[in-house]
Design a protein around this nucleic acid. Sequence first.
DNA 1: GGCCGATGTATCGGTCCGATACATCGCAAC
DNA 2: GTTGCGATGTATCGGACCGATACATCGGCC
Lengths: 199, 199
Amino acid sequence: MLELAILGLLHESPMHGYELRKQLTTKLGAFRAAISYGSLYPTLRRLQTDGWISEGAPPAGMPASADEVPLLTGKRGRVVYTITAEGKERFQELLTAAGPETYDSEAGFGVHFAFFARTDPATRLRILEGRRRRVEERREGMRDVLSRAAERLDAYTLELQRHGLDACEREVRWLEELIANERNGTTPQPPSADPERSS
Amino acid sequence: MLELAILGLLHESPMHGYELRKQLTTKLGAFRAAISYGSLYPTLRRLQTDGWISEGAPPAGMPASADEVPLLTGKRGRVVYTITAEGKERFQELLTAAGPETYDSEAGFGVHFAFFARTDPATRLRILEGRRRRVEERREGMRDVLSRAAERLDAYTLELQRHGLDACEREVRWLEELIANERNGTTPQPPSADPERSS
DNA sequence: GGCCGATGTATCGGTCCGATACATCGCAAC
DNA sequence: GTTGCGATGTATCGGACCGATACATCGGCC
């Protein structure tokens, strides 16, 4: 999950950890709160040993000190991570292999959705429908509670269920709209200059 | 978090693990998905060693009614957990000591809210206002993204931000209503049992 | 008799979080 | 000038929680 998010961001441009976290927070802020360094740095290391990312600047002419640890000033400096060719493949693989874990968690869905512009239409539809199914299940659960056991709950619990039910209904409607758009081919149009077409 | 939830449920009545999970899932289903046994059972064991809960039927000299889960016939049977007196104190303590972690996570807030009927009014207000502040912060973050960086984002990311913003605005309005009710003393009336004196 | 789904307890590996520590840099107050 | 302070930046540790899995019992239902 974090792996997908990191690869996706580094796919756009190389970055160091701090910046990565900021982008992660704003880009995924709608569905998850913030990424902790306690997950970020270990994951970065793992991605590095797996060969998906590498330390240092991209092929754009590296400076002289490209030796052991080419930290920009010789002191403990910022470490820039760049995605590798294998990493890009891995990213596409993760994007397409969207299993149930994609629908189950808010965060999982949010991350995948955030990269929908780089996901193929069939996978987009699959994810949206899977997500809708999950949310509908949650919605039904809450409806049952409200209709069958309402008298056994205190007012606050009831209110919590009502609020949750409302949120679920809204999300289902939102998903329904997105699904309709996908089927129409009315994919939300990127602003203007996005040469990314189906290759 | 799980600790509070478990103590709260066992405060209502003794239960075994499976039932506990079901109740947890429906009662807190609005804000978190489902509790895993991989967290539930270890936590139960911890609560037991801490002395907050105990294994077996409640201490009230209940005669061994035939109904009383005597399935422990040498085989592996169901284990009923009962909250202890210390556990009840601990529960109240956790209820009142609602720090920032209470507002930060959906789950944390959901659990505290679910037990609002047993929380004193001052703490209720504090939690609701803390939560509102958090959600407002998230909302402002998303507004900034939408107003300042909209042109640099693809249509899907934009849509995600819009949806998130909408959800935040709704939650803030919901919280505002609840806060107003609290201040009015218009606390949602519990069914019939023992309502607080309406001042 | 055999199968199956609901009930029930339990563990393991792994992901992610929250707190914490520490170092650098620019900038403003004094 | 130097002192302090907030933003930037890297890093680790313990712990909470999850998902998968295993295994056992029970009540039907064919």
